[in-house]
Computed example of a mutant assay.
Amino acid sequence: MPAKAKWAQLADHIRGQIASGELAPGDKLPSTAQLCQEHGVSTIVVRQAIFALRTEGLVEGVQGVGVFVAERPDGQHQS
């Protein structure tokens, strides 16, 4: 089986942070530049990962401000 794409690995990492509560609804994700540096990936990889998370409804982008963890639409709350 081929290795998972870098963007998918990054998306999994962020998804895990959201699931564990490390990143809570309303929290701002690190900037693209910070994520590139922390994970040793390109801007395109970060953008693809964020796009995937946006498609899943886990994060939402605010133009010129940043990307934030979305509120849970199903009413789930971490306890």
Results as ranks from 00 to 15, higher is better:
residue 1 M to C: 02
residue 1 M to T: 06
residue 1 M to W: 04
residue 2 P to Q: 12
residue 4 K to P: 11
residue 4 K to F: 07
residue 5 A to D: 12
residue 7 W to E: 14
residue 8 A to G: 11
residue 8 A to H: 11
residue 8 A to W: 08
residue 12 D to S: 10
residue 12 D to R: 04
residue 12 D to M: 00
residue 12 D to P: 02
residue 12 D to K: 06
residue 12 D to V: 00
residue 13 H to F: 11
residue 14 I to G: 07
residue 15 R to L: 02
residue 16 G to D: 03
residue 16 G to H: 01
residue 16 G to A: 08
residue 16 G to Y: 01
residue 16 G to K: 00
residue 16 G to R: 02
residue 18 I to N: 14
residue 18 I to K: 13
residue 18 I to H: 10
residue 20 S to T: 15
residue 20 S to M: 12
residue 20 S to H: 13
residue 21 G to K: 05
residue 23 L to P: 03
residue 23 L to M: 06
residue 24 A to L: 15
residue 28 K to Y: 00
residue 29 L to C: 10
residue 29 L to M: 07
residue 30 P to E: 00
residue 30 P to V: 00
residue 31 S to R: 01
residue 33 A to Y: 02
residue 34 Q to K: 05
residue 36 C to Q: 15
residue 36 C to P: 06
residue 37 Q to I: 01
residue 37 Q to V: 01
residue 38 E to F: 02
residue 38 E to Q: 11
residue 38 E to H: 01
residue 38 E to T: 05
residue 39 H to V: 02
residue 39 H to P: 05
residue 39 H to L: 05
residue 39 H to E: 07
residue 41 V to F: 01
residue 41 V to H: 03
residue 42 S to G: 04
residue 42 S to T: 14
residue 43 T to K: 11
residue 43 T to C: 07
residue 43 T to S: 12
residue 43 T to Q: 13
residue 43 T to F: 05
residue 44 I to Y: 04
residue 44 I to W: 13
residue 45 V to D: 02
residue 45 V to R: 03
residue 46 V to S: 01
residue 47 R to N: 13
residue 47 R to C: 04
residue 47 R to K: 15
residue 47 R to A: 05
residue 48 Q to A: 12
residue 48 Q to V: 06
residue 49 A to P: 08
residue 49 A to H: 08
residue 50 I to R: 04
residue 51 F to V: 05
residue 53 L to M: 06
residue 54 R to C: 10
residue 54 R to Q: 15
residue 55 T to F: 13
residue 55 T to W: 09
residue 55 T to V: 10
residue 55 T to G: 08
residue 56 E to D: 14
residue 56 E to T: 03
residue 57 G to S: 04
residue 58 L to W: 04
residue 59 V to Y: 09
residue 59 V to R: 05
residue 59 V to A: 06
residue 59 V to E: 07
residue 60 E to Y: 15
residue 61 G to T: 02
residue 62 V to P: 03
residue 62 V to K: 13
residue 63 Q to T: 14
residue 64 G to Y: 08
residue 64 G to V: 08
residue 65 V to A: 13
residue 66 G to Q: 04
residue 66 G to F: 00
residue 66 G to A: 08
residue 67 V to R: 02
residue 69 V to H: 12
residue 69 V to Y: 09
residue 69 V to A: 07
residue 69 V to C: 09
residue 70 A to H: 04
residue 71 E to C: 09
residue 72 R to Y: 06
residue 72 R to C: 07
residue 73 P to T: 06
residue 73 P to W: 03
residue 74 D to F: 10
residue 75 G to I: 01
residue 75 G to Y: 03
residue 76 Q to S: 14
residue 76 Q to C: 11
residue 77 H to Q: 15
residue 79 S to P: 15
